[in-house]
Design a protein around this nucleic acid. Structure first.
Lengths: 148, 148
DNA sequence: CTGGATAGTCAAGCTACTTGACCATATGGT
DNA sequence: ACCATATGGTCAAGTAGCTTGACTATCCAG
């Protein structure tokens, strides 16, 4: 693949990602969760199953643990999450979602589904799943960094 | 497609985009252009063919024209670009790349090609082109926003 | 020629991130 | 058992890169 083509592919990927984030953000806001930034949705996704420590969250988001700590602080202040003592490590604290946090996480998922549905209409469901499968192979478990 | 699947697809897309940006940035730095931020590469791509005005660059990057103006100022200061009078509009100024700017743009393309080559090994050239084609259909001509 | 739109810049402010310092707890070698 | 070192977390301060607001110069339609 030529260099200029690689650059064009990169631009397309970045544009799609930006568009997606924008739509999810709008969708979440439209569901009444204003003041929540895009990064929160992906933080929710990490916290959702069983909670996570600040350090785990930082790794997931690709930021420093101080930044993750600030993010958690903000989520706690807004009532989306709470800090609990960690069951096995007294240094750590387990951050878990509150009921409102779960509601916001669901809103983010709905917004994502809404945005992706538009793509499905363009590509078709089958191609969309192929797109997903290939993207997942490219960057498995990579951090979801906020910004460049 | 289920909501949770849409979220997972979104995460995969974001992770791939972040990974790509990181690799391009590293590649450009490795070629001796330290101090250049990722956004510069995509600014170069827009300026490369025939130059562009600040306003056009702002639209391409999805930022305010003030931010684009600051970016241009920085690029000029570093010797990557220069402002010229616009041929037909005396209000506007045409921002064009210097020789060093072209060199950096080529470095960014090489770095992008290098990063994409790794994907090609995972997906195969054909699938990679399909991925590109589908991404391009999703967000044609969308802005390349720096960050969320 | 005149009123409104557009290109660009200057200045100030904000926000989300960073680095640095610090304490509490865990872990592993001796 | 003890100490050295590593790790989880937070507080504080600094900063980069964006924003909004205000302004000038130029274009263009009527």
């Amino acid at each position: 693949m030529q260099n200029s083509e690689a650059m064009a592919l990169s631009a397309a990927l970045l544009a799609a990602a930006g568009e997606l984030v924008r739509r999810i953000h709008e969708g979440v806001a439209a569901r009444g969760f204003e003041g929540v930034r895009p990064v929160h949705g992906f933080a929710f996704a990490r916290l959702a199953p069983d909670g996570a420590t600040v350090t785990e969250l930082a790794a997931h988001l690709g930021v420093t643990k101080q930044a993750a700590s600030q993010l958690v602080e903000e989520m706690v202040r807004r009532g989306y999450a709470e800090r609990r003592p960690h069951p096995v490590d007294a240094r750590a604290r387990l951050v878990v979602l509150t009921e409102q946090g779960w509601a916001c996480a669901r809103a983010a998922e709905e917004a994502a589904a809404e945005a992706v549905r538009g793509w499905s209409e363009v590509l078709g469901e089958g191609d969309l799943r192929l797109l997903w499968e290939r993207l997942a192979r490219i960057a498995p478990d990579g951090p979801i960094r906020p910004g460049w």
